Structures are given as C-alpha cells and as structure tokens.
Amino acid sequence: MLGYQVPSPDEAMLIAGGKNKGSTPFRVVTGHGAFVLPFFRKARFLTLSMMESEVDERCVTRQGIALNVRAVIAFKVGTDEASIVAAGQRFLSDQDQMSVLTGRIFAGHLRSIIGSMTVEEIVTERQKLATEVLDGSKEEMARIGLGVDALQIQSIDDGDLGYIAAMSAPHTAAIQQAAQISQSQARQAAAEAEQESQRAQAEYARQTAIVQAQYKAEVDQAQASAGQAGPLAAAKAQREVLAMQTELAQRNAELRQQQLVAEVVKPAEADAEKTRVLAKADAERMRIQAEAAASHNRVALDRMLIDQLPLIVREAAAGLNGANVNILNGASGLSEMAASLVGQGLTIFDSIRGNLNGSSAEDAGEPDAPEPERPQLGDGAHPRPD
C-alpha cells in the first residue's frame, strides 16, 4: 500500500512530522509496519543490531608504569523507546559515530580504572578490571541510548620496559626450578625404576635358575626312579601275569570238571537210574503176573468145587438114606436139617479149597488165607443113628 512501511527485525522506524502522544519528538515503530503520509510524514530507520568498538590506549598505573591496553567492546542501541529516542537523536544521521564515541568513552574509563591499580593487579585480575570499566561506563552509555553487552581485555604490555617480564621472572624462575626439580625427580625416578627393573631382572634370573635346577633335579630323580622301577615293574607285571594264568588254569579245570560231570557222570547216573527203574518195573510186572495167575487158578478151582458142591451134598444126604431120623419140629426142623446137610457140604468144600489154597500160597510164598466161618447145624435137627 502506498505510504505503508515496515522496519526490519533489527531496526526501529522513526516517524517525524506528526503529533505524538508522549513527550518524544517522533514516533518509534518496532516489530510492525505503519502508514507514513507522503509529504506530511518522514520515516527514518535506526539499527538495533550488535556493534563493536576497539580500544588501544596507553595507560599509566598507580605505580607510574605505562601500559599498552587493548580491549574490545560489544554494544547496541537499547530496545526500550527512551534508548531508541536518545540514540536516534544523537546517531541517526551518522550511525557509525556510535562505535567511535563508545571507544572514546571506554578509553577514558579504562585510563581512570588502570590509574588506580598496580601492574600486578591489572595482570593478575583482568576480570576485575573489565568489571570496573563496565560499571563506570554503564550510566554514561545509557544516557546516549547504548547498552554494553561485553568487554574483553585482549592484551596488556609495557612495551620494552620489561616490568611485566621482570615481575614474572620469580614466577618463571620458580616454575623453571620446579620444572628442573620435577625433571630431576623424574630422572631419579627413572633411574630408580631402571635399578628396580635390573634388580627384578636379576631376581627373575636367579629364581629361574633355581627353578631350572629344581626341575633338573626332579627330572634326574624321576629318571633314576624310572630306571629302578623298570625291573620292579617288569617283575610285578610278570607276577601278575602268572597269577592271572594260574587263575585261568583253575577256571579251565573247573570248566573241564563241569564238562565231565555233564558229559560222563550225569549220563552214567541217568543210565543206572534207568536200569534200576526198569528192573523194578520188571519185578513188579512179574509179581503182578504171578498174582494174576494165582488168582486165576483159585477162581478155576473154586468154580470146579462149586460145580461139585451139589454132588457132595447129595452124597451126604445119601448117607442118611435108610437112617432113622426123627423130625421134632415139623417143617422148620426139616429146613434145619437141609441146611445142615448144605453146611456139611460147604465144610467139605472149604476143606478141599483150603488144602488147594495152602499149596498155592506155599508156592507163591504168601501166608494162608483165613478160613471163613461156616454155618452150623441148628438145634432143631439133630441126626440120630438108627
């Protein structure tokens, strides 16, 4: 837009020609734009960036010794409206004058501060010097709208006077002496370390020789023991071999004995047992056959006698033929008489059978069989002779 202007971020726009609300002679605009009426308003720009100024000043100390001091000051226009107005009124037409004026201001304060200090204080306390210069110039710099950010003392020297060098001589000598002492101590320590190393090497060599001697003695002893142990070991081994061979022979003998028992004794015992069992079986068979034969003969004889029993009874009854026999109790007595006749026949049968059995028993080697009981004639029938 025509007449609208915007300052840079590191600039302040100063607008003159209009009425301002405050007591400032112009309007200050920072960070935004503003409309500037052509022909009726005029805008100028003041830098707010960092600037620097160098000081190279010959100063005299409290001791009257001249020193050349070089310093660098970093400064800028303050950001508040009063500082901008103050700086604008002084430096807007020639802004380079800020560096020149700042250098002169700091040169004056530097001379004043150094004049109240000794060379030793200036050399050893540079930060104190810078702080006092800043504090002394702060109010003056603020009046012209400038603020100091930093002051750096770059160098201090006395030219060819040699005071600073002389001042540092004791320290240099002390440092050199300390350095020499340190070097001497270092050399001594190195020598001691070398000696210790040599002693350690000698001790190591001695210990190594002792160990080697001990090792050689142990090896010789081991070899001697091995030489002596050789025949003993051989004899011991031979004895162990003989013992093992003896044990093996005993085991072979036991195995052979077991083999003989298995192959000869056991079969012979088995054959003998077989023969004994067969003989016993044959004897038992013959006894059984003899018993069977004897039993068969008795059965045949008994059958023959039984077949003859009626004839025997008939003959006994014939003996009563014509005899005068009285029957006392009738039919019962007759039955008893018949039974008596049968009993006599059985008695005769048993007698004959006993004789035959006795002969058979004697032939067989067995005891006679007991004679069985036979019925007797009853009381109701008694034969009487005629």
Rank of each mutant, 00 (worst) to 15 (best):
G3W: 02
Q5W: 02
P9C: 00
M13W: 06
T24K: 15
V28E: 12
V29L: 05
G31A: 00
F40L: 13
T47A: 11
Q63C: 00
N68E: 15
K76W: 03
A86V: 00
A87T: 12
A87M: 08
G88M: 03
Q89D: 03
Q95Y: 05
G103Y: 04
I105G: 05
A107G: 08
I113F: 07
I113E: 12
V119Y: 04
E125V: 02
R126E: 09
D135I: 01
E139R: 05
I153Y: 09
G159A: 15
D160H: 15
T172A: 10
A178Y: 00
A186N: 09
E194D: 13
Q195M: 14
S197D: 13
R199W: 14
A209R: 15
Q214P: 00
Q214N: 02
V219K: 02
R239S: 15
E254H: 04
R256P: 01
Q258L: 01
A262T: 02
A272Q: 05
L278T: 13
D282M: 06
A283N: 08
Q289E: 10
L305Y: 04
Q308R: 10
G322M: 07
A323S: 12
N324D: 15
V325Y: 09
N326F: 11
S332F: 14
E336L: 04
P370I: 00
P372C: 00
R374E: 00
D379W: 09
G380V: 12
P385E: 01
